[in-house]
């Protein structure tokens, strides 16, 4: 598709401090419901989730690393992402124009097959009706529909911001939007500047320069610091992680004994 965009993200784990600002910004931007007791993370919803990794060594060799995980917006091969292909009701879609995996809430009937298909646990279920503390409903983002009980939801790359940016550009007689006109909430909230967002197809975008995707190898990064989560499964994700630490890069995928080779040496 000519001029097709492929929105993606680069997250520099060397910069991430694990502060959680991205999670909070995401909750506020996307009207994510919460409960009085939100401690069970297997029942609560967070489109952006920050994992805490460690190198499984003891002091003084112990190291840890924070890894923010939004939806990976898998392209698979030719748009065949793990979750989109399994949805029986066509309630989720891979947009070839933007590379965004969308979720149509009023279409979803809650079979949860997509949750079973996603190895990243990105897709989460509304086990309860969303209830907001008194008065808080007035602070909901009017551009994002709230979801009902019994449907699956997930990170949308703040697609409402893309629509708004396109509308604005149209009103101003432009066909294209600039890089900074469409940025996700987590990107803007990150105080360390660890998250970079943009069009992976556009060589002028920072995200392209950092990720250096190789079209011949399904977007595999040419950057020796970069890796993608579970790349070997063929999910072809659009979130690239950067780390200068080898154990972090190795933690991104499963390897047989002796199989992992640092790209820096290969």
């Amino acid at each position: 598709m000519e001029n097709a965009k492929k929105f993606g993200m680069v997250i520099d784990l060397d910069k991430c401090t694990g502060c959680g600002a991205c999670m909070v910004a995401c909750m506020a931007e996307n009207n994510i419901p919460f409960r009085a007791d939100n401690t069970d993370k297997m029942l609560s919803i967070s489109w952006m989730h920050v994992y805490k990794l460690n190198n499984r060594k003891l002091f003084p060799d112990y190291e840890e690393c924070y890894l923010p995980r939004p939806c990976q917006h898998c392209e698979g091969h030719g748009g065949h992402s793990p979750c989109v292909s399994v949805c029986p009701a066509t309630a989720t879609d891979y947009d070839m124009d933007t590379g965004i995996v969308s979720q149509i809430y009023p279409r979803c009937f809650g079979c949860r097959y997509c949750m079973a298909a996603c190895p990243y646990h990105v897709r989460q279920f509304n086990w309860w009706d969303p209830l907001w503390p008194d008065g808080m409903e007035k602070m909901l983002n009017p551009s994002v529909s709230v979801r009902m009980r019994g449907v699956v939801e997930k990170c949308s790359f703040c697609i409402q911001r893309y629509q708004q940016a396109k509308d604005r550009a149209y009103m101003e007689g432009r066909r294209e939007i600039a890089e900074d006109e469409y940025q996700t909430a987590c990107t803007q909230a990150c105080p360390a500047g660890a998250i970079v967002f943009g069009d992976l197809n556009n060589p002028e975008h920072a995200v392209h320069q950092l990720a250096q995707p190789d079209p011949a190898r399904h977007g595999h990064s040419k950057n020796p610091r970069a890796f993608r989560l579970l790349e070997r499964l063929g999910t072809n994700t659009k979130i690239y992680y950067l780390s200068s630490r080898e154990w972090v890069r190795k933690a991104g995928d499963n390897y047989l004994e002796g199989e992992f080779k640092s790209k820096a040496h290969s």
């Binding site: 009937f109 079979c111 009902m148 019994g150």
Partner: peptide, 9 residues
């Protein structure tokens, strides 16, 4: 299913 009334979808 989470939304039984939409089962026919």
């Amino acid at each position: 299913i989470g939304q039984p009334l939409r089962g026919w979808f």
